[in-house]
């Protein structure tokens, strides 16, 4: 568990060139169980976030979670429903859970969406890349924050 109180954590990220131009954050500050500051300068967009969550090869979310996306059949049952996520968690808490849920629970099965270290045998295609870009994480956070019930 992460102890309360400000705690700066360096997430060493090999930033792909595409984000380098947008000024990626390679320093992510975790405070308590949250990352209060956005990862990207561009604000998250809930509509784009919903599309990422629904996409089975981008967000992958619905493989394990169900969520209020009725047009997507066959949602997963491995993880809790995304419905109400925005009521359960603050934006900063959602951000940390997507970036690297293992910081809160080392046994979590939630993949680390914005971490490139401490992984084994990553396929060459994905080597040094995060599952989502900083902007995509912000989009997903923005979408999940809208799920109040």
């Amino acid at each position: 568990m992460v102890r309360a109180g400000p705690l700066a954590v360096l997430l060493a990220l090999a930033a792909p060139a595409a984000w380098a131009q947008q000024g990626p954050r390679d320093v992510v500050v975790v405070e308590g169980d949250a990352i209060p500051e956005p990862l990207a300068t561009r604000p998250g967009d809930a509509a784009r976030g919903r599309a990422i969550v629904a996409n089975r090869s981008v967000g992958l979310c619905l493989l394990c979670h169900s969520g209020p996306i009725p047009e997507e059949r066959f949602q997963g049952t491995l993880a809790p429903s995304l419905a109400g996520a925005g009521a359960r968690w603050s934006v900063g808490q959602l951000r940390l859970r997507i970036v690297d849920g293992a910081r809160l629970n080392p046994d979590t099965i939630m993949p680390p969406y914005y971490r490139t270290t401490g992984l084994r045998r990553v396929a060459r295609t994905f080597e040094g890349k995060t599952i989502l870009t900083a902007e995509q994480v912000e989009d997903v956070v923005a979408y999940l924050a809208t799920l109040k019930e």
């Binding site: 493989l63 066959f74 099965i109 084994r120």
Partner: peptide, 24 residues
């Protein structure tokens, strides 16, 4: 052993979550 970008192991799906639905 956890492996890959998704940081999952065989056991996570096939022992701990067998019988549940991965997508459909």
């Amino acid at each position: 052993r956890r492996q890959g970008q998704l940081n999952l192991s065989c056991a996570i799906c096939h022992d701990d979550n067998a019988g549940k639905k991965l997508a459909g």
